[in-house]
Design a protein around this nucleic acid. Structure first.
Length: 435
RNA sequence: GGAGAGGUGCCAGAGCGGCCGAAUGGGAUGCCCUGCUAAGGCAUUGACCCUCCGGGGUCCGUGGGUUCAAAUCCCACCCUCUCCGCCA
């Protein structure tokens, strides 16, 4: 959610920033919101004035009754009662306008960072780094889609996954399952130097998913457990971002950097029939997520660091990769600035998005009400509080990296070598061959 | 799932219709006292919104209701604790 006050203090700036997202309707929404905000202020002032009178009158009534002046007390009671009716009407109007404004604001995306590249679609996302380690040509034996290799090696059994759970579920078996777990372990271990490992719940409340911006907009994309008003997390980001909701942190403890392994559940509504084979798109997948709570000053360096961590993981795995920056027209709703790491998979001849690292500014923490307090040079708390900045990104998204390994590491005989950095996690398997 | 108890400020904890945004104690901060330390004295100490910067409003688990007036009464829900049941 963007700051409501900006609608009256800096409306032009808001409009200028949002116009870069290339969605003209947004500007109408913003102007509409600004009008509602102005009206809300008026109603609020009027309501508060009446409340002040009622409060004063009620105090008088109490004192008069104590003094036995019943007639005077009753006169003031009547006066207060009349005001009460007006107050009730104003309060109802206030609530109504406030709800309408909130709904509008929930739909207004974050303001893009000044340095984010302009563009209309993903065609305009500039490549920032790379391609790194991309061969000029690939031999035929690497031009094999990972699902074919996996099936012949017996390490992917999607047919039975579908039997158990329906379309778009995957199942790795044997060395394939071990490889997937090795990737998680690798993703966690290499980031443990600065991140606290967290294992959050995979089911969260409606309030939690609303705070991160998944709801109400993406309700169709998430699995709901209606009976208990719970949702399956689409990413650990949802749990982690809400960790400090309604708390005021100290700037001295910031940045707080967390990482979490969790399953991610996505209904993939609207993608039926797309990427149905292999591991590229599934209703459930595993991922190691990084997340940071920071002051606005700390955020830019953290963003760089997180992008570097996501990218160097691909380098260590020996996979060809590149880093692109997301342009204003392609940016997610709550993003302020975003970089994607993509891996090249020769079998499917595609760049696969394996990580998306974003800086959210205070857009998320405003919804979740995560604040921080500043301290002066002497370490004394400064009165007041500010919204924290949040950043997050995948440290390692298992299925696509798994797929990229099967395609990049395929040998001429159809076996797949295991990247060296994963050897410690593979129980001795360094090469996956058919039995 | 059943029975009981309870949710109040940074913490503990009182208040159970009216000068209660909230006693008291602890903590923290500042000043005084002090050779140092300890003890002591005095003061300050929540957040948010609006503001014509005087002030006004909101918040006592959450949401409704009753009343001139609600932390206090009523209803629903959520959460915590204890016991029982069930279970990895």
């Amino acid at each position: 959610m963007i700051e409501q006050r900006l609608l009256r203090t800096d409306l032009d700036h808001v409009k200028a920033a949002l116009s870069r997202r290339m969605r003209p309707k947004l500007l109408d929404d913003v102007e509409h919101a600004a009008r509602l905000d102005a009206r809300l202020l008026d109603i609020g002032r009027e309501r508060d004035e009446i409340r002040a009178k009622v409060n004063a009158l009620s105090k008088d009534v109490g004192m008069l009754r104590r003094d036995g002046k019943v007639d005077e007390a009753e006169a003031k009671q009547a006066e207060s009662k009349d005001l009460g009716a007006t107050e009730k009407a104003l309060a109802a109007e206030h609530d109504q306008v406030s709800a309408a404004l909130r709904e509008l604001l929930l739909g207004i995306p974050n303001l893009p960072h000044a340095d984010a590249p302009d563009g209309a679609s993903d065609d305009d996302n500039p490549v920032i780094t790379g391609p790194i380690a991309l061969n000029a040509t690939f031999p035929d034996w690497q031009r094999v889609p990972h699902w074919e290799t996996a099936e012949s090696l017996g390490i992917l059994d999607n047919e039975r996954a579908v039997k158990i759970s329906g379309a778009m579920f995957t199942m790795q078996r044997g060395a394939g399952a071990t490889l997937a777990r090795a990737l998680t372990q690798f993703g966690l271990d290499r980031n443990a130097d600065v991140h606290e490992e967290v294992r959050p719940p995979s089911l969260v409340t409606t309030a939690t998913l609303t705070a991160t911006g998944q709801l109400p907009k993406f309700a169709e994309d998430a699995y709901a457990i209606e009976k208990d008003d719970l949702w399956c997390v689409p990413t650990a980001e949802a749990s982690l971002t809400s960790l400090f909701n309604d708390e005021i942190l100290d700037d001295t403890e910031l940045p707080i950097r967390l990482m979490a392994f969790s399953p991610s559940f996505r209904r993939e509504a609207g993608s039926a029939g797309r990427d149905t084979r292999g591991m590229l798109r599934a209703h459930e997948f595993d991922k190691v997520e990084m997340l940071a709570f920071a002051t606005p000053e700390q955020a830019p360096a953290l963003l760089d660091d997180m992008v570097e961590r996501a990218a160097s993981a691909m380098a260590e795995l020996g996979l060809p990769y590149r880093v692109i920056e997301i342009c204003t027209g392609d940016m997610g709703q709550s993003h302020h600035r975003t970089f994607d790491v993509e891996v090249y998979a020769p079998g499917v001849d595609t760049w696969l998005e394996v990580s998306s690292v974003s800086w959210f500014g205070d857009y998320q923490s405003r919804r979740g009400n995560t604040r921080f307090r500043r301290h002066d040079e002497d370490g004394k708390a400064i009165k007041g509080s500010h919204f924290t900045h949040t950043l997050n990104g995948s440290a390692l998204a298992v299925p696509r990296v798994w797929a990229a390994i099967l395609e990049n590491y395929r040998n001429e005989d159809g076996s797949v070598s295991v990247p060296e950095v994963l050897h410690p996690y593979m129980r001795g398997t360094t090469r996956i061959s058919a039995n």
